[in-house]
Simulated scan of single mutants.
Amino acid sequence: MTRGARDELAEKIAGEVALSDEPGATLRKWRTDFDVAQTQLADRLDVSPSVVSDYESGRRDNPGIGVVRRLVGALLDIDEERGGDHIRQHARVLSAGFESDVVHDLREYPANVGVERVFDAIDATELHRGGQDTVAGHTVIDSIAAITRLSSDEFFQLYGQSTNRALVFTNVTRGESPLVALRVVSPTPNAVVLHGLDDEAVWDRAADLANIDDFSLAVTDADLETMLDGLRGLP
């Protein structure tokens, strides 16, 4: 694990927490993204789990830079001891860039957002509910451009900072191509939205694939700019 990748990620997390209107919620988002339990983080910091809970819930005053540094360092230490998978994933995409005709929008949320709230924001109809109820960001992708122009590594970079997100595919006819493409990508996102069609036009196997790979699936026929405005209004 290179110190550069770790240091760059640490700066990103700390900066996001510092600039957030809800720093506790942002801390919780990153902890859950790293699959670290409150008790495990508390043990590493040598504090009680209630201290971590109080910071995340906002019951304690906003954490100062020293506290944030310790929290971020503990998360990264735990990940490195597990093999550093999350740090490597973030390192792959921190500098990733895409042409605007491939990716219309890619952003991370300051806190986890419920899948249902995301679907409501873009007037989407849910076809299948997966096992995860929240996402921490979204990527809006032109499905044809992504499938025809991106390599498998570049396709994975569409996840942004985490697979805990919603992938929204535009330029969709039935949804077959992007859903089949997702079958060879591991892990899959928490939610997928097919844009530009209604539930009657979607591929009849779409919900079956969503069930197999355990992600939430929805469709929306809102116009592109309206959908983007809805997503950018989250959380």
Rank of each mutant, 00 (worst) to 15 (best):
residue 179 L to P: 04
residue 234 L to Y: 00
residue 20 S to W: 10
residue 12 K to T: 15
residue 86 H to D: 08
residue 168 V to M: 01
residue 135 V to E: 01
residue 35 D to C: 05
residue 135 V to M: 01
residue 186 S to K: 13
residue 89 Q to W: 12
residue 104 H to K: 10
residue 221 D to F: 07
residue 108 E to M: 14
residue 71 L to H: 01
residue 113 V to R: 09
residue 184 V to E: 13
residue 1 M to T: 11
residue 27 L to Y: 03
residue 159 Y to N: 02
residue 83 G to Y: 04
residue 53 S to P: 12
residue 52 V to Q: 03
residue 105 D to W: 10
residue 208 D to R: 15
residue 197 L to A: 12
residue 5 A to D: 03
residue 96 A to W: 02
residue 93 V to C: 13
residue 162 S to M: 00
residue 12 K to H: 15
residue 20 S to R: 07
residue 52 V to P: 01
residue 73 G to F: 09
residue 130 G to T: 14
residue 33 D to K: 15
residue 121 A to L: 09
residue 89 Q to V: 12
residue 124 A to G: 13
residue 25 A to C: 14
residue 80 E to G: 11
residue 46 D to T: 10
residue 94 L to I: 09
residue 112 N to C: 13
residue 193 V to P: 00
residue 119 F to N: 11
residue 203 W to T: 01
residue 83 G to W: 13
residue 196 G to W: 09
residue 28 R to M: 05
residue 52 V to G: 00
residue 194 L to A: 06
residue 105 D to V: 09
residue 159 Y to Q: 00
residue 50 S to I: 10
residue 18 A to G: 02
residue 221 D to E: 14
residue 160 G to S: 00
residue 13 I to D: 03
residue 71 L to K: 00
residue 159 Y to W: 05
residue 197 L to C: 11
residue 166 A to D: 09
residue 175 G to V: 04
residue 219 V to L: 03
residue 22 E to P: 01
residue 117 R to W: 13
residue 183 R to T: 07
residue 114 G to L: 14
residue 222 A to G: 05
residue 45 L to V: 04
residue 31 R to I: 10
residue 34 F to A: 12
residue 23 P to Q: 07
residue 151 S to G: 15
residue 100 S to A: 03
residue 230 G to M: 08
residue 6 R to P: 00
residue 22 E to Q: 10
residue 45 L to Y: 03
residue 59 R to Q: 04
residue 133 D to H: 14
residue 14 A to C: 10
residue 2 T to P: 06
residue 196 G to F: 10
residue 148 T to R: 06
residue 93 V to H: 09
residue 165 R to E: 00
residue 155 F to Y: 14
residue 109 Y to H: 07
residue 14 A to H: 08
residue 178 P to Y: 02
residue 139 T to Q: 02
residue 32 T to N: 14
residue 112 N to G: 13
residue 175 G to T: 02
residue 185 V to P: 06
residue 115 V to K: 06
residue 117 R to I: 09
residue 178 P to T: 03
residue 90 H to M: 14
residue 221 D to G: 07
residue 191 A to H: 05
residue 67 V to Q: 09
residue 186 S to L: 15
residue 98 F to N: 12
residue 14 A to I: 12
residue 50 S to T: 10
residue 197 L to R: 12
residue 178 P to R: 00
residue 46 D to A: 08
residue 224 L to D: 11
residue 13 I to S: 01
residue 163 T to L: 09
residue 32 T to S: 10
residue 211 N to V: 02
